[in-house]
Design a protein around this nucleic acid. Sequence first.
DNA 1: TATGAATGAGCCTTCATTCAT
DNA 2: CATGAATGAAGGCTCATTCAT
Lengths: 206, 206, 206, 206
Amino acid sequence: MRSSPLPATGSEARPRRADAERNRRALLAAARRVFERDGFVSARITDIADEAGLAHGCFYSHFPGKEEIFAAVVAEVSEEMLHPGPALTAPAGSDPVAVIEAANLAYLEAYRRNARFMALLEQVATVNDAFLRIRLLTRNARAIRRLQRAGLADPDLDPDLASLALSVMVSRSAYAAFAVGREPVDTARLAATLTRLWVNSLRLAT
Amino acid sequence: MRSSPLPATGSEARPRRADAERNRRALLAAARRVFERDGFVSARITDIADEAGLAHGCFYSHFPGKEEIFAAVVAEVSEEMLHPGPALTAPAGSDPVAVIEAANLAYLEAYRRNARFMALLEQVATVNDAFLRIRLLTRNARAIRRLQRAGLADPDLDPDLASLALSVMVSRSAYAAFAVGREPVDTARLAATLTRLWVNSLRLAT
Amino acid sequence: MRSSPLPATGSEARPRRADAERNRRALLAAARRVFERDGFVSARITDIADEAGLAHGCFYSHFPGKEEIFAAVVAEVSEEMLHPGPALTAPAGSDPVAVIEAANLAYLEAYRRNARFMALLEQVATVNDAFLRIRLLTRNARAIRRLQRAGLADPDLDPDLASLALSVMVSRSAYAAFAVGREPVDTARLAATLTRLWVNSLRLAT
Amino acid sequence: MRSSPLPATGSEARPRRADAERNRRALLAAARRVFERDGFVSARITDIADEAGLAHGCFYSHFPGKEEIFAAVVAEVSEEMLHPGPALTAPAGSDPVAVIEAANLAYLEAYRRNARFMALLEQVATVNDAFLRIRLLTRNARAIRRLQRAGLADPDLDPDLASLALSVMVSRSAYAAFAVGREPVDTARLAATLTRLWVNSLRLAT
DNA sequence: TATGAATGAGCCTTCATTCAT
DNA sequence: CATGAATGAAGGCTCATTCAT
């Protein structure tokens, strides 16, 4: 795995650095595999280092501890999983149903790709994580309010609670379908169902 | 890990000494408090025994280990939490919306009462648990199919996926509202919102 | 062993006492079985009491601890196993070879009957036990000296060391044959061999 | 209890750090002292590590548990104690009595050097150990048969049983003399006695 | 930085012994 | 005396973290 660095002419600094970065990446990738396989609690520093082909003592040159490397893996995965539900903030004039369906489909596909790690996230989710979602919920709630004012959505719904409920409906359905269930689920069919439930529930004019 | 997930509660109900039963109950109550406070993994046998006012060695006279006492606490809580979503199988002739609202409200109230422990359960939930819910989902899916055939529900919905989505919408909203969120949530208002979303999403004739 | 004293007039004294003695015997018998099955170290007070059909707390009404009940079992078995080798102190005029053979045979038979417990004894044998044997050895050594003086035994042998060697030859052969070996050993044949070795080794005039 | 009775000593002979090997040796030496002092059962991992000047956690870097380090000590001692009795398989033409005496003396000396640990071995001896000796016994039994056929040994002896008896006579005399007895025993004198008993008992032509 | 041996806090579990009933 | 629940000392083992090389 390791490439032998160039002989000591005088330039050991650069290959050293390159090795370090490579090892850091190896640890991250190994951590993801180990976390997915063993869960957060059972994952051991030693296992992560072993999986990366490094001595366990080396781990601490790159990460202060298990929580931190977990956070780093979360950050990696989060790039694909930013949106826990379809954003209703599409440009004016676009078909809102199509927008919702596209967002749902994108989310479900991303979830499916990262299903093992997302399952892990659900178990480790802490209060902090939950509050991170609040912004998204607020954004969705604002969109629902706008639709209500425009006479396009059921005016009897509480925008905040409806936003919450529909958001968790999508994310938790993805969890049930991809992280827990064993039988393969037709992603498009699930996306279509979620979109229709969403549209129906808001009584979006179609 | 260990064999019997649910210790036989019935057969040991009549112990030789009343003290023994009292201490068993004390351990159960203490375990619930400790689990809610520290989570399953961090909970220590010693803490549970301490919380119950007993020596830690005594713990093993009543439960084989941490998993078993956890299962016993789960069994206790489960009596209140049997229904993860509103059952659509109300007696014919009753107002379906009222039925749904009543079921939702009952579920949310029960969830709120046991919120701390339910939050714990979500984190410890295993694949097995998920499959236990399938029966309920199947029942709900059947109800949706029946309504569709009767022309009372949106015929374009996939009954199985819709059943899943609405079920997790309710349970996960409860989790977000009572187990994670800090601000008190108006249970009635949440129940009303969930019911309306449910009715709307199925396009139940009202 | 102990005779039950006269009852105190007409009360519960007699059955109580009788019960106590019966339980003491039950514990002794149970202890022997448990020791033979599990060895001294692994034997637990609880197991002995269970085997006797008594509560473990009851054990301490009869014996102070594990060592003491073990000693009591040893005492029981010792009644059959007093002689670790053939005594050479037969009445004058009797055939010495016949005496040796009879003694060996008796010892081997007794060993075979108590083989499981004797095996245990070998493992638990302490320095103290060893010194208990010294008297027997001294007695045998005296006999050898007498035979040497009478010109009936090899005068070049050290009587003390020969006594020791021949004694352990018999007892350890019994151990190997009955306590360790799995195949059944012909006791008579072993006795005959030991006797012949003994006679030969002392060069007893035959 | 655990799987490998003898840890591979050869493959780990060249550790990355010389310290590791030194500490492994320190643990072995410490274990021998602790086992001799406290016996197998009472010996604690902590004591062994303390005796070696190491933290107890470090023990597990070198040995999986108590049984394994004991086996390793046994292996060490066994190099000196391979022969539980004099081998009768001397080259033709050599004086058989001298051969027996030399073998006995060598065995007794080795036993004396390792007396404390041999005493321990006797107590921990299991059925397995006993069967390991069978080969040696078989070899001796063959030698006795050969002597009998050559008219040089008592033809009335059962070769197998005699072989067993004489073997245990030697090993158990060593035990009595060096492991149990407190008074110093003259090794040469004991060897001479055992040899004479051996020669006499087989009626070896001298 | 990489290595991997050493450290030691921490937890689980067993079981002899006590003691109230 | 019998009972069996409670006690708590004792020891095994794990594993995150440190550190000398």
